[in-house]
Design a protein around this nucleic acid. Sequence first.
DNA 1: GTCTATATAGGGATAGAC
DNA 2: GTCTATCCCTATATAGAC
Lengths: 181, 181
Amino acid sequence: MSKEEAIIRLIPAFRQYGYEGASLSLLSKASSLGKASLYHYFPGGKSEMAAAVFEYVGNEFGDLVLKALRGENKPFVKLQAACNSLREFYDGGRNSCFLTIMSFGSADNLFHEQVKARLRQIIEALTKVLIEAGIEADVAEVRSQDAVAQIQGALILVRILDDTEPFNRVIKSLPELLLRL
Amino acid sequence: MSKEEAIIRLIPAFRQYGYEGASLSLLSKASSLGKASLYHYFPGGKSEMAAAVFEYVGNEFGDLVLKALRGENKPFVKLQAACNSLREFYDGGRNSCFLTIMSFGSADNLFHEQVKARLRQIIEALTKVLIEAGIEADVAEVRSQDAVAQIQGALILVRILDDTEPFNRVIKSLPELLLRL
DNA sequence: GTCTATATAGGGATAGAC
DNA sequence: GTCTATCCCTATATAGAC
């Protein structure tokens, strides 16, 4: 098994149980690897596993969502593409966001700066598209922040209410909401 | 020390570290009570402590925020009052929401239904005010959900970005956003 | 690279004195 | 009602065989 494969198998465990909740026995089961094997790939232990997962998922997000925001298409088209990618990335709202997961408990102590950097990157990419669309810079920034908050909040509602509708609704309305006059 | 006092002292610990992250040693320090004393007040152990905290905070929210949504004032006035209470309740965005905290890891297994009930209660109370204001029922419900999501998301942004502005902005714009035509 | 077995620390929880 | 001391279990992490 490759390290990448190991990381991929760890993702759902951290996603569902959070950093503290994902015990090594649990991670071992989830990956079908003995504890010692996990330590072979991640000598730094659990925190290194979480860091690897966080980085991997972050890159995935970059390739899938942020990529859609770059390029030469019209802003509205790019936003629509990004929203489709978002739906895929979050599995229609069923996946929790790692930024949220990593912002609690001791994970926050360990990863605060990295999480902050990722979030800023997302907001910045979104802001750029809005500016392209002719929206004033400071309005664009605020609106991007609000959009990200809306998504994060929707993901929480989905978890709690056992209903993916809040997420789908947000995703559907997002491009127009962002580009409103 | 009364049980209520014990609960009050436990609140910040659970808020900051989450359910799994709040170890008994930590809870013991936070409350200035020995572990055995904690078990005197909460024979059911940590889960009972969390349940008590969750209930207490929920009641606090009811007395402070939901109360503002009842009564005879005009909808817009009630929403403004509720937003002021929200700002107080979340300490300007510095407090995380217990609904979010309790929706991860094993806390989710333990408290899922209670968390869901609380969230529904909040959405319902909000929806009722919007209906009073003449908004159609299904629009009102959707808009209430979105508002709650916006707040939850803003609280996450605040945590991650170390900046309370996203929360304050949402709170400020919420009454008009909810009652827009 | 993966396993079994084990070391060590910290977790939740209890007993019993005061 | 609060403490000290302690129990048992699980958690993280490591050793060493294959």
